[in-house]
Structure formats: C-alpha cells, structure tokens
Design a protein around this nucleic acid. Structure first.
Lengths: 173, 173
DNA sequence: TTGATTGCAAAGCATTTGCATGCTA
DNA sequence: TAGCATGCAAATGCTTTGCAATCAA
C-alpha cells in the first residue's frame, strides 16, 4: 500500500493537528515517543515503548509514554488491542485497514489477517439480532507453523511469548 | 437442550471428580460457591459471585471465590471471558456449546450467538496461514435494539453497563 | 494426624492520578 | 505569563500470594 520508504509525513501532520485542535502543546517528549512508535512496526505495550524511548532519552518518564499513547490513539494513529494477557498493546491504526489477529501461544508471534466474508457474516448476525455494531474483535490463538513442528518433537526453540513479531498482513480468501 | 428443570447433577459430579482426581478436598465453601455459580445463568466476575455468596454465607472470603472459580474453570464447568473492561468474567462452560458474544456498550447486555459459517471461515483462514488454532474469541460491540431507540431520542433508560443480562442464545444463520 | 483449605492482609502488576516543577505558546 | 506537560510517587483496581489457623480425609 504505502510503497515508498515510510517517512510518516502524514502521520506527524495528523498528530500535530490533533494536538493543536485540542488546545494541547507540542513537546520534545511527545515528538520522540511518536517517532519511535511510528518507526516500530509491531504490537507493543506502553512498557515496551518506554524502554525503546529510554534508549534515546533516559529522562522520559513512564507516565508520559502512557499518556502519549492515549493521545496517539485519540488522534487515530494508534489502536489499543488486547490479547488476553492483561496487557494493553498498541498497533498502528492510520492507513492500516481493519484486520483481525492470530496469536501463537508458543512464541508470541502475531499474524494479521482480514476476511471480507467473515466481516459480512458478522454484520448479518448483528442484523438478525437487531444489533447495531460499532466495532468488533476476532482473535484466534494456536500454534504457528514453526511452533507446530518444534512442539511435537521436543522443546520449542524460542518460547515465552516475548518476540511479538508482526508478520506481513494476509488478506483472504 | 437441557429441557428438564436444571438440577446440575452432572455438573456437581464433574466438580467432585475433579477435586478427587487432583487430590484436593471437598469443602462447604467450594460447594456453596459452585451451587451459586451453577444456578446463576449470567456472565459474572469473581466479585459479582462473591456478593451473591455473601448473601448466603457472610463468612466466605473473597479469595476463596477467586480460587474456586479457577477450580471450576479447570474442571471444565466455567470459562473465562473478557469484554475489554479489564475484568475477568466467568460463564457456564459444561454443556454449553461454543459461542461468541455481542456486547451492548450502552446497557451492558450480552448476547450469545453462534455462526457455523464464521467458524468454518476462521478455520480456512488459519489453514491458509499454516496456523493450527486451539481457540478463538469473537466479540462485537455496539448498541442493542433497545438502546438504539433510546439513544437517538434522548437519554438511555438504563445505562452504565451494569445489568449483564444473559440473553437466550441465537444460532444462525 | 497430615496436609489441603481458608481468610486476612499484604504483595503484584498494569494503569491512573495528584502535585510541584518545568516548559510551550 | 498562563496554564498545559512532565515525572515522580502514591493511589487505584483487579488478582494473586504468604501465612497462621482451621478442617477434611
């Protein structure tokens, strides 16, 4: 989709605009946190982001990262996702079409996928119940290709649900 | 499905069996908590259940309810569900077919529904990604029939996402 | 009698809030 | 200069754990 080397020009613009419209102020911390968030194509928690920010500016506080992630969410650049481990993850939202997630319970790998058929069936179900849907969340847990092999023959190579690598999206079917 | 007045004979049996197999002990508290859980057809948090238990035996502690819900889950009688408000809800699991949820963001009403088509499409997607699914969760948020009407004309009659009423399941399509 | 169970209080964990200080606009 | 932003520490809300006393088997 965004074929050019991602420069996040539009994203920055959106963030600054949101800040101005809300009567807020642009600060070095917010800039830095946004930059690092934008260049990290991953599902990350506030703490994950905090440590990334720490590497570049150790004076930035935990709280500011939390608050800035909320801001990014309000601005439409980020989206909160939960995967059942009682943590809030954030993913890119701007220019990222709606999608669902598959989560490998062994290595923590997260796939994004999209199925128009599933979407339309969901709407059909809601309609049948007289329900007006605003948003939804579909998550499928299981074992990814790699962990299936490893899991049957012995111990996993990389376990612990830490990696949180984001695979390229798959659209189907 | 279970047409007769629910007596939960089988459920009790399962719980006791699980306790024995695990080398655990049957206690008055566990019995009481199980009974109240079984007779409450609802999605409830540990705290919800705690207060119901309090009404019948005020000496039972919070912690015991937590621990017993875990036990009930292990035994296969309960299942944990999360609706995004950072609380863990429990629903009946034994003899309750797999289903998904629609959650009214206005009144907290929870619908259960099941769509074999959606299920099979999910499996298809997983298969395409070489993913072996173990479980999944589909939740749709929005406004129920009642809250749609109320919401457009003025204030909601019953708001606050508290009721947590469980509607009869709907299967489709 | 033994060791699991209980209930209290305290600890954990992720997240939020209060507040004095610092800094944008 | 006004008042929003920051970062620390403390508070929160849900859940889990430590532990001495209790109780089932």
């Amino acid at each position: 989709m965004t074929a050019k080397k991602e420069d996040f020009k539009k994203e920055r613009e959106i963030f600054l605009e949101h800040i101005q419209r809300s009567g807020l102020r642009r600060t070095a911390q917010r800039d830095l946190i946004m930059e690092i968030f934008l260049r990290t194509e991953d599902h990350l928690t506030s703490e994950d982001l905090y440590w990334l920010v720490q590497k570049e500016d150790a004076t930035v506080g935990n709280t500011t990262v939390y608050r800035t992630l909320k801001l990014l969410t309000e601005a439409g650049l980020a989206r909160e996702v939960r995967f059942g481990d009682n943590k809030t993850y954030y993913e890119h939202h701007y220019n990222h079409e709606h999608h669902d997630h598959m989560i490998c319970t062994e290595c923590g790998l997260i796939f994004e996928f999209f199925s128009p058929e599933i979407e339309s069936l969901q709407d059909k179900m809601a309609d049948k119940l007289g329900f007006r849907p605003t948003h939804h969340s579909l998550r499928i847990w299981g074992l990814c290709k790699t962990c299936q092999k490893v899991d049957t023959s012995g111990h996993a190579v990389a376990s612990g649900a830490q990696p949180k690598v984001r695979m390229r999206s798959v659209t189907g079917s």
